[in-house]
Amino acid sequence: MSWRTAEQSEQSENRVKVVFIGGLGRSGTTLLERLLGQLPGVVPLGEITHLWERDLVGNEMCACGATFSHCEFWQRIGERAFGSWDNVDVERLNALKATVDRTRHIPALAARKLAPAQHELVTEYVEYFENIYLAAAKDTRAQVVVDSSKHASLAYCLRWSPRIDLRVMHVVRDSRGVAYSWTKQVRRPESPTGDQMTRYSPAKAAMLWNAQNAAFSLLARRGVPVRRVRYERIIQRPRRVIASLARFCGLDLVESDLNYIGEGWADLGPSHSAAGNPMRFTVGRIPIFPDEAWTEDLPDGTRRMVSTLTRPLLGRYGYLAEDEAPLEEPAREEVSARD
């Protein structure tokens, strides 16, 4: 491609370790990325799936507070990855995305082998991500790059890359809490026009919850290392969960590396997350507590409807046992289970 540089050609023989945080939005994925991003050797990039339109085209705000075009970090990444961001053909990338990176394409992407034409398209599409990951790892000397794009279809595309050592953290949250969260109005502070985050009806949120979580379960059966972790467990024992997930990432930590997490709080430093939940802008000490407003505010009829639509996976993840509250599930099943 026209943007390939001599340095990029040399890097093409290397592999980069990518931790992909997946799951349906409003499940705690941004919190997990922020906690992981404080570990030594880790660089969190935010939701790279949205970088092209929101940042490269829309020039929205990086988590550091600068607009994308004025963020020194992202300008270095663009130079290292593509020679210049001007060399990225966003229209071509969007066309590729529509062709390969959609939930409806997951059955084909989950196959043991791709048809030659499809393999060529997936390879071209994934190359954009590969080069960002490699550039970020090189720039920061990180051992692990974190992409919190969430979408299962992108994870299925990335699995075909020989340059990516892919590991997936599949975040699940009680579907009723997720459905309630999707009904709330949340302003996107990075948007120059004051846009609101997308909202879904409880029924649509329930169906998306089913689709995304089922897809990540299948991904694990396709040879990709997948670690399932529940939002409720992250909230209850964040230090223990992050320590376990660091081992899953292949990081060799000492106890003091986790001192930024305490009982019910965490200290967060600045980052350069390109897109995601408004929490990515938060710096300093944050409280960590369960968001259980849905247990009081979600109407009974809506709760029953969401429960019915998502019942098989709710039961599989341990949310339906009448004699067991979600927060009491043994940590081993929560942190260590591999689907």
Rank of each mutant, 00 (worst) to 15 (best):
G284T: 12
V306C: 09
E328F: 03
L93G: 10
P40F: 13
L134D: 09
A63P: 13
H170K: 09
A117C: 02
I235P: 02
Q196W: 12
L208M: 15
N277Y: 11
N210L: 15
G194V: 06
T282W: 07
F20R: 11
H272Y: 14
V186N: 04
L121D: 14
Q118E: 14
L327I: 00
C157A: 05
H50L: 11
I288F: 12
H70C: 01
S175H: 00
R26W: 07
I242A: 12
G23Y: 13
K138I: 06
R112Y: 13
A155K: 00
R230P: 10
I288N: 11
A211T: 04
L109N: 09
T49W: 14
W294N: 03
T302S: 05
D297N: 10
V306E: 01
R34E: 07
C62I: 01
D300R: 05
S161W: 09
A135M: 13
F20S: 07
D139Y: 09
G318K: 06
Q212R: 04
L56K: 00
S181W: 04
R4P: 05
I235C: 07
N277H: 14
T310R: 01
P116K: 06
I132F: 14
Q143D: 15
L39T: 04
A220P: 00
E232Y: 08
L251A: 06
A95V: 00
G315Q: 15
V88F: 11
Y156S: 04
A95Q: 09
N259H: 08
E72C: 10
V100C: 10
H119A: 12
T5Y: 03
Q8I: 05
R163M: 06
L158T: 05
D252S: 15
H119F: 02
T140G: 05
T103K: 11
V172C: 06
G223N: 07
T29S: 14
L93E: 15
M197S: 04
R338A: 13
